[in-house]
Write a protein that binds this DNA or RNA. Structure first.
Length: 447
DNA sequence: GTTGAGCGTT
């Protein structure tokens, strides 16, 4: 990698000093990766809510930003991070740590956030047999403070392989939901439990970025938009389609950017709600929406598709540009998808709740089922939403979760073909619907 | 003592 005179072995890390402000008495030394980068997730583990780093240049005395790309913060020079004090960058409108928002007795905004962004217990499925409440707590503390861990046992006291956790803050919860989890070599499924369906109203975390230029990469968008909040996903369709999608951890950040224009690489892009422009009432077909949902399928591919050796960091999951039909929005002609997946994809695209923009009736306006007269019946055709509306899993949209997470297929949220997408589904109705054989569990190779 | 889809003694 670089020429730092470090004799790499597993036990040697470089540490960089990070603080929330230029008073370094509370600075924390954070380990870099062996390639000299610092993972944003490592930073966030120590400074929850942080979305980047900056530092005061010793010569110019001005603040310089640290390059963020693909979830990695890059040192400012070839020589590495040096002895600078690095300062956390927190999202706009929320200079402090997100965690502090709820712990501080500061005002209406606090209440608003607390109300909208409510924690719930999370179920952890597929835990290793050897897990203990302590080990699970320790694992999940990388996402924020863990206030509860319950591992379920039978009458004999033997562990049943699943349990519940709860984070102190919604931000932590979303962080945990935004990735896959490998604990002691097992892929552990973390979800909002069925019994809690409907209790976590969500706004879309994803925004549509229009007027992109061809030279804008996903990394460019991520880097630019990270200054507003933690970005969990970016999708730029290829071949070039002049738009992209950016997903934020915090739906409020996403909402706050809607309607704004931003300049990236010298070009003005427009940010808007990641919902299609409804041109006609007969929008059930895909022919005339202006851009279609993001048929990216870019979430939660199993380890085979990951560029970092199976680490499920969602930042590395922009693996493919599947399903984009260059002829227009919507699925390729050979898509023979169960409608449930179409529905899921809509929500992946940020349609969750069909909010119709910030001015509409808010997160709850999705109650009562989908639009266009499908009253009470969801698009799966095999279950009803009931009075609580669709399950929140519709909106989770992260980490491959929330897809049909009730029964049957895809319940691990993992893609069967190692590509993390739909590329292998060519016609014929093969695919997820009904085929429980071999697809529903990515844990098979494990013991 | 084994096991691997699931949904919580409070």
């Amino acid at each position: 990698m670089n020429n730092r005179n470090v004799n790499y072995n597993e036990d040697i890390f470089d540490y960089i000093k990070v603080s929330e402000d230029e008073d370094d008495t509370n600075a924390v030394e954070i380990p870099c990766e062996h390639d000299g980068t610092l993972l944003l997730s490592t930073l966030v583990a120590q400074f929850p809510g942080a979305c980047g780093l900056k530092y005061r240049h010793p010569e110019t005395k001005s603040i310089r930003g640290i390059r963020l790309s693909d979830g990695k913060l890059h040192p400012p020079s070839e020589a590495g991070w040096g002895k600078n004090l690095y300062l956390c960058v927190f999202p706009k409108e929320n200079k402090r740590k997100m965690e502090d928002v709820s712990s501080e007795n500061s005002a209406a905004k606090t209440k608003r956030l607390e109300k909208k962004l409510t924690c719930s217990d999370l179920i952890c499925l597929g835990l290793p047999w050897k897990s203990t409440e302590e080990s699970i707590k320790q694992y999940f503390e990388q996402f924020g403070e863990v206030v509860m861990v319950q591992l379920k046992k039978d009458k004999n006291g033997s562990f049943k392989g699943f349990g519940f956790i709860r984070f102190a803050t919604y931000a932590s919860q979303m962080r945990a939901l935004a990735q896959r989890h490998n604990i002691d070599g097992r892929w552990v499924d973390v979800r909002i439990p069925n019994s809690k369906e409907g209790v976590v109203p969500q706004m879309p975390c994803k925004v549509f970025v229009g007027r992109c230029t061809e030279d804008m990469t996903a990394d460019d968008l991520r880097e630019y938009f990270s200054k507003f909040g933690e970005v969990t996903d970016v999708f730029v369709p290829r071949p070039f389609r002049a738009f992209g999608f950016v997903t934020f951890l915090d739906p409020e950040v996403a909402q706050s950017l809607c309607g704004e224009d931003h300049v990236i690489k010298g070009a003005s892009v427009s940010v808007s709600s990641a919902a299609p422009k409804i041109k006609s009432k007969s929008n059930q077909n895909w022919k005339d929406d202006s851009y279609g949902p993001n048929w990216d399928g870019n979430r939660s591919g199993p380890s085979g598709g990951s560029s970092n050796g199976g680490n499920s960091n969602i930042d590395t999951l922009n693996m493919q540009n599947l399903g984009i039909n260059p002829n227009g929005g919507g699925p390729p002609a050979n898509f023979n998808l169960p409608i449930s997946l179409v529905a899921a994809a809509l929500n992946q695209a940020g349609w969750g709740g069909f909010l119709g923009g910030p001015g509409s009736s808010g997160p709850n306006n999705w109650q009562g089922g989908p639009p266009q007269g499908n009253s009470g019946k969801n698009w799966n055709g095999n279950q009803n939403w009931g009075q609580n509306g669709p399950p929140p899993s519709w909106n989770q949209g992260q980490g491959g979760q929330g897809w049909n997470n009730g029964k049957g297929n895809w319940n691990q949220g993992n893609w069967p073909n190692g590509q993390g997408g739909w590329g292998g589904n060519s016609g014929g109705g093969s695919g997820p619907a009904g085929s429980s054989s071999g697809w529903s569990n990515n844990n098979k190779p494990q013991t």
